[in-house]
Amino acid sequence: MEHGFTVPHGTLSILRDIHLRVKAGESLAVLGPSGSGKSTLLGLLAGLDRPSGGRIEMFGTRIDDLDEDGRAALRAGDRDAGGVGFVFQSFQLLPALTALENVRLPLELSGNRDADARARDWLGRVGLGDRLDHFPRQLSGGEQQRVALARAFAGDPALLFADEPTGNLDRATGAHVAELMFSLQRERGVTLVLVTHDENLAAQCDRRVRIDGGELRESA
């Protein structure tokens, strides 16, 4: 797979000749310095954008030739049909929704009948059972990321994409959130693709790859 942009005097290449296979249940860390293209890679793998060339398969389906809605449908499914969860560096909670509403939103979107109960349950699991009606601005950074984790796992995804999940948190809080994420990932048998520049965090994954100058290589 490759990815780039057309600029006035040619093409700007972001990712070149990427070959990557992630096995079900595996946790993979994508390491690399800032601007190396790791977040772009994550977006492409999750189907949030289309590569300029090559092919990407998710759950055995080619997603690079699917249209936007086709890719969205793959992300929206539950474990049996695939299903994708996300954890972002900047949490990406909707500020006007409470913690409960934020977790409930993707469940309602996919037509889940017990969205409310499930969202409450998951917020309880991440230790926020007493903060259901709090808005993001009333929560600390660590708490916001725990809401994001609850939101990601509540949909029972087969695949979780995490983009610098501890990047906006202090060391202790980051460690706590990471521990929670890995324990849930193992417990649920979810495949994890984690993008980070934090070697310690990456070390907790089954496998690491490094991206530099738009190229990918396996890391020890």
Partner: peptide, 19 residues
């Protein structure tokens, strides 16, 4: 900007354009 972010997030959750 807020709406753009909201829509992007919904799309990442798998919301279709029609939705």
């Amino acid at each position: 900007a807020d709406r753009g972010r909201e829509i992007a997030l919904l799309r990442s959750f798998g919301a279709t354009r029609v939705q």
